[in-house]
Amino acid sequence: MSKLTKGEVTITLAGTDYTLKPTLQAFSVLGSRYGNHSALLGKIFAGDVPTLTTVLRQGLGFNDQQAKKLPQMMFASGVPSLIEPVSNYVFRLFNGGKSAEEVLAEQSAEDVAADLSADQEGDEGEENPLLAGA
């Protein structure tokens, strides 16, 4: 995936596929309205229709006229079908385009590296008890 498309998420609304695109505008509007992505994700997971509408409008880049069609599109799709792609989009928007899996993998790799480093530092000053009497 190129950097230009990193963080894009496909969503189906009323039988048509659309692409939610990460933009500075979406980041700014959603960040200022909800404060942080955890609060925003909480509302999305709760199926909060106004929140889903706001995220979709920002992610799709819809103008006022296009945005008027969103409630009907969401109704036709069903709110539960929107939660996974919208939450995926928001997570990527607030994490440099990275999915939750990518972020967790990076954190796990960093934790392993930190553990290895700590183990190596701890070993330097210790005498091997098997070699102590030799």
Rank of each mutant, 00 (worst) to 15 (best):
S2T: 15
S2Q: 13
L4K: 05
T5D: 03
V9S: 03
V9P: 01
T10D: 10
I11C: 05
I11Q: 05
Y18M: 05
Y18S: 08
T23L: 04
Q25C: 07
S28N: 15
V29S: 13
V29N: 12
L30A: 07
G31E: 10
S32V: 02
N36W: 07
S38V: 11
A39M: 08
G42A: 09
K43G: 05
I44E: 09
F45W: 12
A46N: 13
G47H: 00
V49S: 04
T53K: 11
V55F: 11
Q58H: 09
Q58T: 11
G59S: 13
L60Y: 01
G61W: 00
D64C: 06
Q65C: 01
A67L: 04
A67C: 12
F75S: 15
G78S: 02
S81F: 07
P85L: 12
P85K: 09
V86M: 05
S87M: 03
S87R: 04
N88P: 08
N88Q: 12
L93W: 05
N95F: 03
N95C: 03
A100N: 14
V103L: 09
A105H: 07
A105Q: 14
A105G: 11
E106T: 00
E106H: 00
Q107Y: 08
D111G: 03
D111R: 10
D111M: 11
V112D: 09
V112M: 13
A113G: 04
S117I: 05
D123T: 08
D123R: 10
E124N: 05
E126F: 01
E127Y: 04
N128A: 12
